[in-house]
């Protein structure tokens, strides 16, 4: 019993920490620019595969840390290019933005699928910074995951600090509150949006770097699952609210791990948790826990 409870608590915290990172950027982009970026899950997936491909290249033997730097730079650039080439010219039409980012997510999935490593399950365990595990009440606590949880909390705090204190963070908040007024104050709104999308891609990449070495690359379609779960997180916490996405991430995380551990056939039912959360929240509180009153 105590093992089950440990299992639930630990995995819930772990899932929550991963989704906090992914959903925070996702929610930020929506809050600032009203952009629903459906390729956000694909960024997470692609970072994992970028790391894998670089680790497979002989050049990077002994230089594993460099692959992380490169992968994060590449994913940030891809995020920026997504905004500049696809989203910015179409910003006025919600339908077009959604379709075009959906198309991009699909393209990235297919590109990975036709690459030589597309159809198998891979491990990028070389990038684990901490090996081994400690038994606590009979449940193995993997050190890498403890590192992830700590790092995630640190990143969330740093990010909150960045948004609240730095000049760029203040501009981001200004644009999200009133785009036109921010423009009149001399803030280049589309440049701020560009930075926001790049930051969100970076956060998704960081989440992939922290989580995937301990787990495995399950195939290019895994991006959709992360997109779906972060959508549930963001709906639960309220679109555009950072506290909301962090709180929502942990609620979703604990719910999923509870289902996994205590419900018969749990791992299969856990897939249904996000949609149930989405529907329940939409029916009783459409703006989410911390969201603004109106839902755009």
């Amino acid at each position: 019993m105590i093992v089950d409870i440990m299992n639930m608590l630990f995995n819930g915290t772990l899932t929550g920490a991963v989704y906090a990172l992914i959903a925070m950027g996702y929610s930020l982009v929506y809050g600032v620019g009203g952009i629903m970026n459906l390729s956000h899950g694909a960024y997470f997936m692609l970072t994992g595969y970028l790391l894998l491909w670089m680790l497979q290249t002989p050049f990077f033997i002994g230089l594993e840390w460099l692959t992380v730097v490169f992968a994060l730079i590449i994913i940030t650039v891809i995020g920026g290019l997504t905004f500049l080439l696809l989203v910015k010219p179409l910003q006025d039409s919600h339908v077009a933005v959604v379709i075009v980012t959906f198309g991009l997510a699909f393209l990235l999935e297919q590109v990975v699928l036709i690459s030589p490593s597309g159809t198998e399950v891979w491990s990028i365990g070389q990038l684990r910074l901490f090996q081994g595990y400690t038994m606590v009440f009979g449940y193995p606590i993997v050190h890498q995951y403890v590192f992830l949880i700590v790092m995630s909390i640190v990143i969330v705090l740093l990010f909150a600090l960045f948004i609240n204190k730095s000049k760029l963070g203040k501009s981001i908040r200004a644009v999200s509150q009133d785009r036109e007024a921010a423009g009149l104050m001399g803030i280049n709104a589309s440049r701020i949006l560009l930075y926001t999308v790049m930051i969100s891609a970076l956060l998704a990449g960081l989440a992939a770097f922290l989580y995937l070495p301990g787990a495995s690359l399950d195939g290019p379609s895994m991006g959709w699952g992360y997109l779906l779960n972060s959508f549930a997180v963001v709906i639960l916490g309220g679109m555009g609210s950072l506290i909301g996405s962090v709180a929502g991430a942990f609620i979703v995380g604990y719910t999923i791990s509870f289902t996994n551990v205590f419900v018969p056939y749990g791992p299969s039912w856990a897939h249904l948790v996000p949609i149930i959360i989405i529907i329940v929240i939409l029916l009783i509180r459409p703006q989410g826990l911390f969201g603004k009153k109106e839902l755009r």
């Binding site: 629903m36 339908v95 997109l227 959508f231 897939h271 029916l283």
Partner: peptide, 23 residues
């Protein structure tokens, strides 16, 4: 339930529904 959502929310809501059914 989903028509409470507007625009891009609805898009993701329906996508979520189809992924759930698939699973």
């Amino acid at each position: 339930p989903l028509l409470r959502l507007k625009g891009p929310y609805l898009a993701l809501g329906t996508l979520a529904m189809s992924l759930i059914l698939l699973k």
